[in-house]
């Protein structure tokens, strides 16, 4: 499996943010996108995910097989929002995503354990703290399989212990042939990752 982007350019509100970004990511690879606020990190990730049209260039996902024909189909998206409903419990939220996303991987309890929220599945999502909500959103990446993780500031709100746990989860994902593209300000502990620096 391989993620390829050729000469991508992105614009936001008719203003060009970046031009000529090319990248190739093989199975097990990771890419860290860094740069100041407003440099277009999120825009780049959204273009990769197919949520925004690229102003120029091309994105493709090769050798994904039947299950993962496009980048969007092959990706987990962890954006600024946690994609969880406040009125539902943690377990109900994850159960839903597990059923809706398909390709089930870990069980809900197991995923909650992996992010350090074991035994809290019955709690309403609304009463969790900011960091716990982020961890719940990370648990969503574990309940269903996608080869590519697109992470936008994955560590926002996380404490040091959770950051370490996330680094371990990402390492395990890469070890099993997964790929990661992360936009971040902080070091994520991704060994041997490519780096793409963007300028405002």
């Amino acid at each position: 499996m391989r993620l390829i982007a050729e000469a991508l350019s992105g614009e936001r509100h008719a203003e060009t943010l970046f031009e000529g970004v090319s990248l190739v990511l093989d199975a097990g690879g990771a890419l860290v996108v860094t740069g100041p606020n407003g440099a277009g990190k999120t825009t780049l990730l959204r273009i990769l995910a197919g949520l925004l049209p690229a102003a120029g260039g091309r994105v493709s996902f090769e050798e994904g097989g039947e299950d993962f024909p496009t980048v969007a189909a092959a990706s987990h998206w962890l954006g600024t929002g946690n994609a969880m409903k406040s009125a539902l419990s943690l377990a109900e939220n994850l159960d839903f995503w597990r059923a809706f996303l398909g390709n089930p991987l870990r069980g809900v309890e197991e995923a909650l354990d992996a992010v350090g929220l074991g035994g809290l599945g019955h709690l309403p999502f609304a009463i969790l703290s900011t960091g716990q909500k982020r961890r719940a959103a990370i648990a969503r990446l574990l309940v269903s399989y996608r080869p590519l993780w697109l992470l936008d500031e994955p560590t926002s709100g996380l404490d040091t212990a959770s950051e370490t746990r996330l680094a371990e989860l990402m390492a395990a994902h890469r070890a099993s042939g997964g790929m990661i593209v992360a936009a971040t300000h902080l070091p994520l502990g991704l060994d041997g990752a490519q780096e793409l620096r963007m300028w405002a």
Binding site: A49, G50, L51, P69, T70, A72, A73, S75, W77, G79, T80, G81, N82, A83, M84, K85, S86, W97, F100, L101, G102
Partner: peptide, 16 residues
């Protein structure tokens, strides 16, 4: 849209 679920629903359009 506000909580980010819509992005994921849109990205799942190959499956659903």
């Amino acid at each position: 849209r506000e909580d980010g679920s819509l992005d994921i629903l849109l990205m799942s359009s190959d499956r659903h």
